[in-house]
Design a protein around this nucleic acid. Structure first.
Length: 655
RNA sequence: GCCGCUUUAGCUCAGUCGGCAGAGCGUUUCACUCGUAAUGAAAAGGUCGUGGGUUCGAUUCCCACAAGCGGCUCCA
């Protein structure tokens, strides 16, 4: 028999894995056990560090406010949180006091001592902690999620005592699965409380709201600083900030929450995105259609949207009703709704004529503007809005052709995303679960789900299951893309739908003359153009590849004398459709360089006496590198090539 | 929708313990004509988010609403 302290003298070892299970260093093991050290900088070690920091936070809160009731306190990415039920909400100032109290606890070096208890013992000890009691009650049943299992997820119920090393007195305790650091001192100084927020108990809107305090914790202070620097870098890429700085778009308060206007520069980026997409769709056998922004209610009854999503639709405009003097209706009115989806309209286009199997697959594409009354607290920049334009297509096909169509659609989607500069993907397969909200027979769901799975697996991309994530009418594959700083965004979705063809009674005539039901595939590539715009803005940090850049080339004369020469170069570029201009302002040259560098223009062409004499221009790139004395014809050709190839240009071309 | 915070010039932000507000950048004008990230000077620019209340007096205190931010919930 031995414990982890005698096995691992290395101070960076904070816990151990015994026969695959995480355990405290204080646990006893025998030489028949397989024991591995868990170091503080490993994923498990970081979780343990952060979880222990959460305990210290809870202890500090109860020191300051003994009436605070404990929720849960798990580790999360980069840190931890702990939920509390308190009479008075925390203020940002409270964090400072709590931070000090935590610091004292950490410097005391309190030991975390694990103790196994029975359910009844735990109930007696935690009689004052109603939320913990609820978790004990849940232990035998099914647990909600991983965060809760941090408290009671183990085979046995355990309480961790925080023991003052000088007096041996237990100063605090918490129901917890563990493991923990050996003592609080090992939390060190690489941590900080970050913010307060409200959170529903056990994640349900129906439950009371608790006060949540978030913190971040790292093995060293330097690593925490590095984390903070990463956050600052991410903030610089924030599309809302860049949208303001680069004059791309805005959300005027007068229009309403979640409704954007695109400024001329943002308009150029957006139109390039759309035009390229349009061209690729044309080449790939899509038919372009258009549909209005509003419709009478019947259409959304047929589609089921009013039954399922009325809450998230703008309320109706009631029109045309007439009444006589007595108030009796003399003319029946109608309710019109702003459309939340394009599919009902496309179904009507499908149904407008009788269809043969020879027409299939029929691919209807539209940049369709939709309006959804998103809950006020969910709106976020361009990524979550109330008015947006989807690059929406609905493909009608036979069951036989379904798989081939899904395969080619997925390929099309991935190819197109790559053309916009995203290249690191994985797939998510969203399926139904036991919930009531899903419509359709088990057989249909099985067939649809299996088909999607086969298609996804054939793509060779990583496939992550998402049980319960399907739409009510069918399963879907979603393409997740990682951006330049490793964040993932849900991009395209491909959904199979056996339900809407049924509801709209869609048919085609098969080769044998019978009437058959087509299968419908919903797919959006960008999701919404607004959202994709935001993703690309953040991915490129506002420095778009040349083909998307609002201004591609700006000419900077060293002195006014060279304006005419530069204007001639810019004219040549404009002839080829290049977005080029000459900066004729009376700023000094250095100031112009600064302005256009901040505006992230890919090419600055600088011309003075030397260049003019040589019939050349001097390139200055976004990172400050230069390529001097390039003959004008070469410069024009290289710029055009960079646009054609969708190349990103940040630094000088290597010759 | 819920909890908390925020809203002052075009932008970023100071400020007023209740007595009609300030900076930098930007804009306009003038001078300067310059070889790789800020030339100098002057001027214009604000119903202190909107509406109500308290007060002799409100940008400041209180209430409601709107918009934004951070979370939670939600996302066809």
């Amino acid at each position: 028999m031995a414990d982890g302290f005698s096995l691992f003298s290395d101070r960076s070892t904070v816990a151990m894995r015994v026969n695959g299970e995480l355990r405290d260093l204080a646990s006893e093991v025998t030489d028949r056990d397989a024991v591995e050290p868990v170091t503080i900088d490993s994923p498990d070690g970081l979780n343990i560090l952060r979880h222990s920091a959460a305990h210290v936070l809870a202890q500090a809160v109860q020191q300051v406010n003994p009436d605070a009731k404990l929720g849960i306190g798990p580790p999360i990415a980069d840190g931890f949180y702990y939920d509390f039920d308190v009479a008075e909400n925390f203020t940002p100032e409270d964090l400072k006091g709590l931070q000090k109290a935590m610091d004292r606890i950490i410097r005391q070096g309190q030991r975390f001592i694990r103790r196994v208890v029975t359910d009844d013992e735990a109930r007696a000890e935690l009689a004052e902690e109603p939320y913990k009691l609820e978790l004990i009650g849940l232990k035998s049943g099914s647990m909600g999620d991983d965060n809760e299992s941090v408290e009671v997820g183990g085979a046995e119920l355990t309480i961790y005592d925080n023991v003052d090393p000088k007096t041996g007195e237990t100063v605090w305790k918490d129901l917890c699965r563990g493991p923990h650091l050996p003592n609080t001192r090992m939390i060190g100084n690489g941590w900080s409380l970050t913010r307060v927020a409200a959170a529903y108990w056990r994640g349900s809107e129906k439950n009371p709201q608790l006060q949540r305090i978030y913190g971040t914790a790292w093995p060293t202070k330097d690593e925490m600083r590095a984390h903070q620097t990463r956050l600052e870098e991410a903030a610089k890429r924030d599309h809302r900030r860049l949208g303001q700085e680069l004059d791309l778009f805005s959300f005027p308060e007068e229009i309403g929450s979640g409704l954007a206007v695109f400024h001329p520069k943002g308009g150029i980026v957006r139109r390039q995105m759309e035009d390229y997409s349009r061209r690729r769709h044309e080449e790939s056998g899509y038919d372009f259609v258009y549909s209005p922004h509003i419709s009478k209610s019947n259409l959304f009854m047929t589609s089921g949207h009013l039954q399922w999503y009325a809450d998230a639709m703008y309320p109706p405009m009631s029109l045309d009703e007439e009444r006589d003097a007595a108030g009796n209706v003399t003319k029946q009115g109608a309710d019109y709704y702003l459309k939340p989806m394009n599919c009902p309209f496309h179904n009507l286009i499908y149904r407008a004529t009788s269809r043969s199997y020879r027409d299939l697959p029929l691919r209807l594409f539209e940049f369709g503007s939709v309006y959804r009354y998103e809950k006020s607290g969910t709106i976020h920049g361009l990524t979550r809005v109330r008015g947006m334009t989807q690059d929406d297509a609905h493909i009608y096909t036979t069951r036989d052709l379904m798989k081939a169509e899904l395969t080619s659609t997925l390929q099309f989607v991935l190819d197109l995303l790559r053309d916009y500069g995203l290249s690191d993907f994985y797939l998510e397969l969203s399926t139904r679960d036991e919930s009531e909200k899903f419509v359709g027979s088990d057989e249909l769901w099985d067939e649809a789900t299996n088909t999607l799975r086969e298609v996804a697996e054939a793509s060779q991309l990583e496939l992550v299951p998402d049980p319960g994530g399907a739409a009510f009418y069918g399963p879907k594959i979603s393409v997740q893309a990682r951006d330049a700083i490793g964040r993932t965004w849900q991009m395209s979705t491909i959904q199979l739908d056996f339900n809407l063809p049924e509801r709209f009674d869609l048919e085609y005539t098969a080769p044998d003359g019978t009437r058959q039901r087509p299968v419908m595939i919903h797919r959006a590539l960008f999701g919404s153009i607004e959202r994709f715009f935001a993703v690309l803005t953040e991915h490129y940090a506002g420095a778009f590849p040349v083909w998307l850049a609002p201004v591609q080339v700006v000419g900077i004369p060293v002195a006014e004398d060279y304006v005419d020469y530069l204007a001639d170069v810019v004219d040549q570029l404009q002839t080829y459709g290049v977005r080029a201009e000459v900066d004729r302002s009376d700023d000094r040259m250095q100031k112009k360089i600064r302005n256009h560098t901040k505006a992230k223009v890919p090419f600055q062409l600088i011309v003075g006496e030397e260049d003019r004499n040589a019939g050349a221009v001097s390139f200055r790139f976004r990172d400050g590198t230069q390529l001097n004395g390039v003959p004008v014809a070469d410069a024009v050709a290289r710029i055009r090539e960079s646009i054609r190839s969708h190349e990103q240009v940040v630094t000088s071309w290597a010759d």
